[in-house]
């Protein structure tokens, strides 16, 4: 069957992507001008300290040996240790990845609802005032940096109206230890801890809103353009000519328009794993992106590599998943 062949082809792309990703992570040390060990240890470090960093990074060995060692470690699930805390990166990621995934999944949900409403409304009322209004809104949303919106929302919803909690992380002060999944919303539900569940939701409100609103501009644009095309298609006119109610007509158009929207969602999801980093920092979220940024400023090379590797992997997998989903949803591909 054709579908299986196409999925197979996509699966073949994974090793290539992963190889490129791993190589890039490894090469990161190489781009540091001068002696990386000095950059990492800092200009005031003692010679012993610099020597320690050099061994830690393996800089005393030739690069191909280091590369093999790096890949070998990865294959065993060993991403190395942080140069500063000395803790294994894998276990740290296991805690942070769910925090980020939970945040961006909900944010994308908000973007979907908001962005697609704007996009579909714009396409449906093309040429009249709702079209101009939604287009204006999308342009404005597209011009807002996410960190600015985060700060404005903190000011309005926390400082002025006290509707949201302070930006102090996923729960604020709480004795709840995540597990078994690491996703707070799921863990609290699994353990029947409704109070903590609501608290987690409450803390999610501001970061989810800021990311969701900013990224809805992108979905709004894509939704608008693909829906506009679909609304002008002959099948939509025929649906109207058959006397289908307007909501059904919009549904027919959406069925045709959804493929690029889904693909774009996958790209956004991948981009957000790292792209949410500033928002995570503002809300002290303790996610992957925030950790990546902190490590970059501290030049904690193994952590930077780990973060890039993990977020790259997540986007590759999500992209593949939605790509295959789009194909399976389309009978034209499914049955040929």
């Amino acid at each position: 069957m054709k579908a299986i062949r196409i999925i197979g082809k996509r699966l073949l792309l994974i090793p290539i992507s992963v190889f490129a990703l791993v190589t890039l992570c490894f090469a990161l040390v190489q781009i540091i001008p001068g002696d990386p060990a000095i950059t990492v240890a800092g200009s005031y470090a003692s010679p012993q300290e610099i020597a320690r960093v050099r061994t830690e990074l393996g800089l005393d060995r030739p690069w191909h040996e280091r590369y093999l060692a790096y890949v070998g470690g990865l294959l065993q699930g060993d991403l190395g240790r942080s140069l500063f805390t000395g803790r294994p990166i894998t276990s740290e990621l296991a805690r942070r990845v769910p925090a980020t995934l939970q945040l961006i999944t909900l944010a994308l949900l908000v973007s979907w609802i908001l962005g697609l409403s704007l996009g579909v409304a714009g396409a449906y009322f093309r040429g009249s005032w709702p079209d101009r209004v939604t287009r204006g809104m999308i342009t404005v949303l597209q011009s807002v940096p996410d960190f600015l919106l985060s700060l404005l929302l903190i000011f309005v919803l926390y400082f002025m109206w006290q509707l949201a909690p302070a930006p102090v992380g996923q729960l604020g002060l709480s004795s709840f230890t995540p597990g078994p999944t690491g996703f707070l919303l799921i863990d609290t539900l699994l353990r029947g801890d409704m109070a903590t569940f609501l608290q987690a939701l409450h803390h999610l409100m501001l970061p989810v809103l800021s990311l969701g609103i900013v990224y809805s501009a992108y979905l709004g644009r894509v939704g608008r353009s693909s829906m506009t095309k679909a609304m002008q298609s002959r099948q939509v006119e025929f649906a109207r000519a058959c006397g289908l109610p307007e909501w059904r007509v919009v549904q027919y158009a959406f069925l045709e328009a959804r493929a690029p929207i889904l693909t774009y969602t996958a790209i956004l999801f991948g981009a957000l794993v790292g792209g949410a980093s500033i928002t995570e920092t503002i809300f002290a979220w303790q996610g992957v992106g925030q950790w990546g940024l902190e490590s970059i400023l501290k030049v904690d090379i193994p952590v930077i590599q780990g973060v890039i590797l993990v977020s790259g992997m997540v986007s590759i997998l999500v992209y593949l998943f939605l790509d295959v989903l789009v194909m399976l949803l389309d009978p034209r591909v499914r049955y040929e």
């Binding site: 298609s233 002959r234 099948q235 109207r240 289908l244 027919y252 045709e256 949803l329 389309d330 009978p331």
Partner: peptide
């Protein structure tokens, strides 16, 4: 709208374009 499809039927130019590509 209620007249279209029930009292007045419409046949368009391009039959492939007229049918929804995703629904059976």
């Amino acid at each position: 709208r209620r007249l279209r499809g029930s009292e007045i039927g419409f046949v368009a130019q391009n039959p492939f374009g007229s049918l929804n590509p995703i629904l059976s």
